[in-house]
């Protein structure tokens, strides 16, 4: 597009002075350019509006109404929000989500970074290692959930068999409110770390080896080089990965459906799973819409933080 506009522009300056007809033609050319631009934008715009923007607005509107049994809607204002503020399960889910994010994000990112630095070096079996780390990402989530379900199964699951070797009694890992969240966190770290590693690996390979060599000539230790040079230059990747990790921690639902159904006693209910339950098990779509608005607000808050604040504080190449 830019090239064509430039072409049109230069043609305009060439002839505009000589003839009024040409300038009119140039005007229609600009009009055609605008039409072309909109036509090119159209497919993406239609998809975005139809499946992202319109549903968001509809959800916000829906959260202000309730649906009666006969199907008619009645405006209730912020009643649903007041009900939500008084709903202990909502607060429980929100709190769970907070602990879940805190448990998974820093650890999985730190692991991803360590693994990436490790497999970035020249060594035997590097390709195999990279593949191995990436496998959890490739596996279907349902399969992953079932494999881990087996690990955590009381008495004959992998974990309890290991405990048995040391003479310890079986433990219902997913059935106990004190361990269920920890179990989910471990599984998600296992799954995410390999995925994030790929991003770090790609970023590491973009870094010029000259920088490390220049630092080594100045006498910087490996750790000092990592702290002062490598890590700051990886910040754009870290930010990207953090944002993704936060979003993923709010998006997790499939594992819960397979493994815990949010139980026991809502100990593993996360916000999105609660929305799913409210909408499709309790059939309360207006309350689900209210919860969704909260989720959207949280996620857009994170996005704003990224674009408005963090991006400006990070060095992009």
């Amino acid at each position: 597009m830019a090239d064509r506009r430039h072409l049109a522009g230069s043609r305009m300056t060439d002839h505009a002075a000589s003839s009024p007809i040409v300038s009119r033609r140039a005007g229609s050319q600009a009009w055609w350019n605008a039409v072309n631009a909109w036509l090119l934008l159209l497919p993406a715009a239609v998809l975005l509006i139809a499946f992202t923007h319109f549903p968001i607005l509809a959800t916000i509107r829906h959260s202000l109404f309730i649906t009666r049994r006969n199907g008619t809607e009645a405006f209730v204002g912020l009643d649903s929000y007041r009900a939500m503020a008084a709903d202990p399960i909502f607060w429980k889910a929100l709190g769970n989500n907070f602990w879940f994010a805190l448990g998974t994000i820093p650890t999985s990112i730190a692991l991803a970074l360590v693994m990436a630095v490790w497999v970035n070096r020249n060594m035997r079996g590097r390709g195999f290692l990279r593949l191995a780390y990436f496998t959890p990402t490739v596996l279907p989530m349902i399969a992953v959930a079932n494999v881990w379900l087996f690990f955590y199964t009381p008495d004959y699951g992998l974990l309890d068999q290991l405990r048995g070797l040391f003479g310890l009694a079986g433990w219902n890992w997913l059935g106990d409110p004190s361990t269920v969240m920890g179990c989910l966190i471990v599984m998600v770290i296992w799954k995410e770390a390999g995925f994030f590693m790929i991003f770090y690996l790609a970023a590491l390979q973009q870094l010029s080896p000259d920088l490390e060599e220049a630092a080594s000539i100045e006498g910087a230790s490996r750790w000092y080089t990592f702290r002062r040079i490598t890590f700051p230059l990886l910040m754009p990747t870290t930010l990207f990965v953090v944002i993704n990790a936060v979003i993923n921690s709010f998006k997790l639902v499939d594992h819960l459906v397979i493994m815990t159904k949010g139980g026991p006693n809502n100990a593993s209910t996360l916000l999105l799973y609660y929305i799913y339950e409210v909408a499709f098990t309790f059939q309360d779509s207006s309350y689900a819409a209210t919860l969704t608005v909260v989720l959207l607000t949280l996620l857009s808050g994170i996005a704003l933080l990224k674009f408005g604040y963090l991006d400006r504080r990070i060095h992009y190449q």
Partner: peptide, 19 residues
């Protein structure tokens, strides 16, 4: 090691730390 040799070096790419 390079540091023990007490040398300085200028690289073709300059190897400046961009941040």
């Amino acid at each position: 090691t390079p540091a023990q040799r007490k040398i300085s070096m200028v690289f073709q790419s300059y190897a400046l730390f961009p941040h």
